[in-house]
């Protein structure tokens, strides 16, 4: 795992990828800092931190696009998968490399905070909280990118889909506020979800039995829930979307609160996405 991580980490700086990521991130965050704080004589650092969240949308796809898609394209996955290491070690190693580059870049922006602290009043607890939140949110976003790079055929589609996945999460709060809460549309939503999962199983196994079984089990679950726990259908869409509302959970960090619940959420979100990535790669060998 360490070998995979080290190689991947070095690759970031042997190819343009790492420099483009770090350069873009620091350039744009520098703009935000210069215009928001320096030129405005403002020591309100939290607003700066909020605004660089927006950068993640563009920066994370750059960071993760090559990770697994390029291995497949160059056929180097044949080396990795026939070596005496596990798929988990490969995926986690790659994740850690991307996260490392991300963290280093993030740490550079602490210089801005130091500048604010010297020339003004830095809201220390908010800043520390926000940085912890940044790191966790970054980890979650990177895990999404890792998953997509495992599915994508090449770097471009990988970056493209990662961008849209992140954009979707970005707009999730809007989607949530307009989504209907009544039981009927919730049921339709649940049915669509079941169908989607069934289609996913079929696409991965090419067996009608597996896909059909998932659809039938899902349908039974929907009916049973209607009979015995109908209240679950009130606001179901909102509740499901809440699992993915990574940004909303960031708010408390920005206020200087580091809550165990949120930390656990981000870490388990990351772990689940990496786990699904491992399963997908292992599954592909059977296809």
């Amino acid at each position: 795992m360490i070998a995979i991580m080290t190689r991947e980490f070095r690759t970031y700086f042997q190819t343009p990828a790492g420099y483009i990521f770090a350069g873009l991130f620091l350039l744009v965050s520098g703009f935000f800092f210069a215009f928001g704080n320096l030129l405005n004589d403002s020591s309100y650092y939290t607003s700066f931190l909020q605004s660089i969240l927006f950068l993640y949308l563009f920066a994370v796809p750059l960071l993760t696009m090559r990770l697994l898609s390029e291995e497949r394209k160059q056929k180097t996955d044949q080396l990795l998968l026939t070596s005496p290491i596990t798929v988990t070690q490969i995926v986690v190693g790659k994740f850690l490399a991307a996260f490392g580059v991300f963290l280093i870049t993030l740490l550079v922006t602490i210089l801005y905070a130091v500048v604010v602290a010297i020339f003004g009043d830095l809201a220390v607890s908010q800043t520390v909280g926000a940085y912890v939140g940044f790191a966790l949110l970054g980890a979650s976003f990177i895990s999404i990118g890792v998953l997509i790079s495992a599915v994508a055929e090449n770097q471009v589609t990988s970056a493209f889909f990662t961008f849209f996945a992140l954009l979707f999460i970005w707009f999730l709060n809007l989607v949530k506020s307009v989504a209907p809460t009544d039981p009927i549309s919730s049921t339709i939503f649940a049915a669509a979800l079941v169908l989607g999962i069934a289609a996913f199983f079929y696409a991965n196994t090419r067996s009608w039995i597996a896909g059909g079984a998932v659809a039938v089990v899902g349908a039974i679950a929907i009916v049973l829930l209607h009979l015995f726990a109908a209240e679950i259908y009130i606001g179901l869409i909102q509740n499901v979307l809440d699992w993915f509302s990574l940004l909303e959970r960031f708010d408390s960090f920005g206020l200087g609160l580091i809550e165990i619940e949120e930390v656990v959420f981000y870490l388990s979100f990351t772990a689940i996405f990496l786990f699904v990535t491992v399963r997908l790669i292992e599954k592909r060998r059977w296809a």
């Binding site: 190689r7 042997q14 180097t76 044949q78």
Partner: peptide
Amino acid sequence: RIGYLPETPPLYPEM
């Protein structure tokens, strides 16, 4: 225990 040379050698061009 197995050494494998696939059809396309699995090389990293940047190394």
